[in-house]
Design a protein around this nucleic acid. Structure first.
Lengths: 248, 248
DNA sequence: GACCAGCATTGACCTGCATCAAGGAACGCC
DNA sequence: GGCGTTCCTTGATGCAGGTCAATGCTGGTC
C-alpha cells in the first residue's frame, strides 16, 4: 500500500486510482487539467487528526488511499463515529467554514487536497463536479440514515453482524473473490473503533464477537482476520436483508 | 394553515411561501417559468404514505406546508425515524429509482411535485438547482450525523431534552417570541412518533417527560403544549451545547 | 349519558448492555 | 530474557431502559 501511495504522489489525474469514482469522475480532460493545477497531495499518518470539530476548514480533499473516520466527542468523553470514509470519498464541505466533526485518519492516508475557496469557485463553474458531488452526498446521506436505524433499533449482536457484513461485502467487491458465500477478510478496525462506530463499549463488542464465533457465524484467526463461512447467515444475524449497504 | 395551503394551489412561484428556501431558491425568473410548467400540487392527508420503502419513486417534490417523516421498519416491527422534513425540504432522490425509506405525511401536507425523469433532465441543465440541492443535501447530512450521536450515545433523558430543545428553538424562530429564555410551544408529535425518532419506547418517553416536569425543566399543559421556563437549562439537560441543531 | 378508540401515564418486573476489575496475548525495547 | 504498551478477553455486578399489564384521560359517536 505504501508503494501505491508514494507512486500516486507523482501521478497525474489520468492515472489516479480513484479517477473514476471520486468527485472528479465526470470531468472532461480540460477540467482535469484545471484540477491538476490546483491539487496537492498530502500524507497523513494513522491516528493523525485532519480537521478538528468546530475549527476552520481551510481545505477539502479526496481520499486516494486509506481510511478516515468522522466522529464527535461529547464533553464527558462519550464518542460516536458518524462516518467512515474510504478511497474516493470526499472530505470537507464547500459552503461552510467550520468542520462539524473531527476528521481523523484511521490508517496511513493519502489525500488529494484543494484550498476550499478555490474549490468553491471551481464548483460554481463546473457542473460536472457539482453533479458528481451531489450524487456522492446523496449516497452518504442514505448510508447515514441506514446507520441511524442500526444505532436506534438494533441489538448489540445485530450491530456487530451488520458491521461485519458491510465490511465483508466491501472486501469481497474489491477482491472479487467469493466462492459460494465464503468470505475471508481483514478487519482494519480495533475493537474500540468498532465500539465507537456501533454505539457500544469495547467489552460488549468483544463479547459479541466471541458469541458469534461460538455460534459458528464467524471464525477468527488472530484478532483481526475474519472468516465468514456463510454470508447469508451473517446477513440474517444482522437483523434484516442488508441490501442497501452503508459505508460502501 | 388550510387557508394558506389552498391559496398556494393557485400560486405562481413568485408568491410561493418557500420560494427563497426550497430547491428553487437560486433560480432566475426564466428558470422559474420552466419549473412552473412542470410542477403540480398535491395534497396529502396526515398519516398518508407518500412513498413506500423499496417501491418505485416516480416523483420528487418540495414540501410547501406540513411535516413529513422518513422512516424504516424492520421485519419484526421495530421502527426508526431517520428524518423529519419541513416546509421547503426536498423529497426524493434524483438518480435513483427506489425509495430507501418510507415517506409519510405526519400532518396534512401540500407538495409541489415533479416527475422524476423530467426533474433529472432539468437538474442536468440547470446548475442553480443542482447547486441549491447540493447545499440542502449537505445540511441534511450534517443533521443526520448529529442525530447519530444522539442515537448512539445519549441517555433517554438527554434524548428527550435534545428533541424538545430543537423543536422549541424552531418554534421560537418562527414565532419570533422569546422573552428571556422562556418559550411556549406546541409539540406536534405523539409519544409514539417521539419514541420512533429517539430510538426509545413510548413508556420511556412518557416517564422521562414526567421526570423533566417534576424536575422543573419543562411544564406541561395538557399533553402536547410545553413550556420551557429556562431554555439554557434545557440545553444543559440535552447533554451538550446543542448549537448545530438538527431538524431545523 | 354510555360507549368506544386512541393516546398517555404509571407500576412491577426483567434483561441487555454498561461498568468495574482482573488477567492474557502480541509486540517492541532495553 | 524481562518489561513495558497496547489491544483484547472474560468475569462479576448494577442499572437504564425494555416489556408486560393495568388504568386514566380525551374526544367522537350513537
Amino acid at each position: 500500500m505504501t508503494a501505491v501511495a508514494s507512486s500516486a504522489l507523482r501521478t497525474d489525474c489520468q492515472d489516479c486510482p480513484i479517477r473514476h469514482r471520486a468527485v472528479c469522475a465526470r470531468c472532461e480532460p480540460a477540467e482535469l487539467r484545471t484540477l491538476e493545477a490546483m491539487k496537492s497531495y498530502r500524507r497523513v499518518d494513522a491516528g493523525e487528526t485532519i480537521l478538528y470539530a468546530d475549527d476552520d476548514m481551510p481545505i477539502v480533499a479526496s481520499i486516494v488511499t486509506g481510511v478516515v473516520s468522522l466522529s464527535r466527542t461529547l464533553e464527558d468523553g462519550r464518542r460516536q463515529m458518524v462516518g467512515l470514509l474510504l478511497p474516493s470519498d470526499f472530505i470537507g464541505r464547500p459552503g461552510r467554514a467550520e468542520a462539524p466533526f473531527d476528521v481523523v485518519a484511521a490508517t496511513d492516508t493519502l489525500l488529494c487536497q484543494f484550498q476550499r475557496p478555490a474549490f468553491e469557485d471551481l464548483l460554481e463553474r463546473t457542473p460536472s463536479i457539482a453533479h458528481r458531488l451531489l450524487d456522492m452526498t446523496l449516497d452518504e446521506l442514505d448510508a447515514a440514515r441506514e446507520w441511524m436505524v442500526l444505532l436506534g433499533r438494533k441489538t448489540a449482536r445485530e450491530k456487530i453482524s451488520s458491521l461485519l457484513a458491510i465490511i465483508a461485502r466491501r472486501q469481497e467487491r474489491l477482491a472479487g473473490s467469493t466462492d459460494q458465500g465464503r468470505i475471508v477478510f481483514d478487519l482494519q478496525l480495533t475493537r474500540e473503533t468498532m465500539a465507537d462506530y456501533l454505539g457500544l463499549t469495547i467489552e460488549t463488542v468483544s463479547r459479541q464477537m466471541t458469541a458469534l464465533r461460538k455460534d459458528g457465524v464467524i471464525e477468527l484467526e488472530g484478532t483481526r482476520t475474519i472468516k465468514v463461512p456463510d454470508y447469508a447467515r451473517l446477513l440474517d444475524e444482522a437483523g434484516y436483508d442488508n441490501d442497501g449497504a452503508p459505508l460502501s
